[in-house]
Amino acid sequence: MTETGPGRSIALWGTLTAVLSTAAIVGAFLVAPEDADQGIIQRIFYFHVAIAITSMVAFAVAFVAGVLYLRKRERRFDEIGVVSIGLGVLFSALTVLTGSIWAKASWGIWWQWSDPRLVTYAIVVLLYVSYFMLRSSVDGERQARYSAIFSVVAFASVPLSFYAVRVAQSFIHPVVFTQSGANMPNTMLVWFVVSQVAMLCLFITLLKLELLQRRVDQALGELKLRLEASRPV
């Protein structure tokens, strides 16, 4: 019964994610005060920003895993890297989607090229999708090595893309988090934090689930090979 440990840990994280997500949905839609300026559409902020930050956390995890793989050459770091980037791309795509919905409601258009964050996320999605092209065209140990190198390159270009887009365009995106703190009332901030923690828990749950699935797949493959080898001719 060696799989009880990871299974239980995933169940715990899953339960935590479900509870926090429910709390975040209830809090964001029913408890948090309505924005005087934007009305109900501002409530997308609780999810849009939380998803965006989670995607960056996923890419940061992949970057650290990439560096660790290059130093230690352990397969588990490659697995953490590929799963994190997969989840990061998913969260980035959701960021672009929710941002686009917010843009339509606030500015009347689905896409705004002068919004640096939305454009940066579109670049980031392109950048990290190409990671999977690289992976699919290289095999074996080289696949893990090149993936690790590219996760470092891609992570370095995220802030550069953001800065380049930001200075090139007039800044119309609502700035919620400034250097002097969060630009919103505490009742809003509480529900944002709940939503953010829920998203991070969701990321951890999905990461653990995917890693477990990969290990089970690998074990199953090895078992099949052993069975075929032991079969009488």
């Binding site: 092209m133 065209s137 290289v138 080289r142 380049a164």
Partner: peptide, 30 residues
Amino acid sequence: LLAAMAVFSRARELLLPVLFLPALLPVIIA
């Protein structure tokens, strides 16, 4: 750096632009 990786891959001619251009966008912008 990216071409050195692409040269060892199967889809090398196709892979390099896909890897390189998104990372090059900040240079194009600036």
